[in-house]
Design a protein around this nucleic acid. Structure first.
Lengths: 116, 116
DNA sequence: CAGTCGCATTGACATCTGTCGATGTATCGA
DNA sequence: TCGATACATCGACAGATGTCAATGCGACTG
């Protein structure tokens, strides 16, 4: 993987993007698009919403297949996409794999695109 | 087109989503995903960023082809995607078609997914 | 230890997507 | 009126994407 992660590791003393109000360059745009692309599928939006709306704030694959009406491999595949984009965090506990939502990546990308 | 637009036309007295903190249903997820999907391509992210960073806040196709290094039909195609998603507004003035960025759709979708 | 359960991976497939060249359509200028 | 300009649309094509059934792999349970 060639993630540059320049969006998530902002210097603390910077308000927004390092360059201020200029347009994003190709590399920055790629990082931003990666996050949005993961949210560009209704199923993944639904999965993340389900996880976030869960009482415990987390969910395993077996809890998610029924609500979205898709097969287990498909749900697993989608969750991998979300994890790769930094929008979900996976934690293995015994037999189960628990996922939590992480909206930090979303707000970071949104702010990179629209520093307003 | 079957846009339900339930995200952009929130009642003014509602803080966030009509149903509060429940998970998004399939229809809502589709609307949210449509916006994010439009931003799921690095070129479109770049285009929107270029427009927003422009001094006048708007740009025509001919100003955008060079920075992204793509053909005119391709840029036109991408801009149509952004307009359809509500992220850009097109205005024809004489020979030129001017585009402005509209981040309202982005913040609405973000808030629908993460009301926090 | 054998069986079951939860999940990831693989392979396959139909569909969608980004891109281009060619062409069509207004609009402006000479 | 004729040519040039700006843009959209069309047709085509390679590559990416979402989905499933089948399989593999750990972890728990009897």
């Amino acid at each position: 993987m060639t993630t540059s992660a320049t969006l998530l590791l902002q210097p603390v003393d910077a308000c927004c993007a390092p360059a201020g109000e200029d347009a994003l360059d190709a590399s920055q745009a790629e990082d931003v698009a990666k996050v949005f692309k993961a949210l560009g599928d209704p199923t993944r939006v639904r999965l993340l919403s389900l996880i976030a709306a869960s009482p415990t704030g987390e969910a395993c694959i077996c809890d998610l297949t029924a609500p979205v009406g898709l097969s287990q491999p498909t749900v697993s595949h989608h969750m991998k996409q979300l994890v790769d984009a930094g929008l979900a965090v996976r934690e293995q506990r015994g037999k189960w794999a628990y996922y939590r939502a992480n909206f930090t990546a979303l707000t970071a990308s949104s702010r990179a695109l629209n520093p307003a």
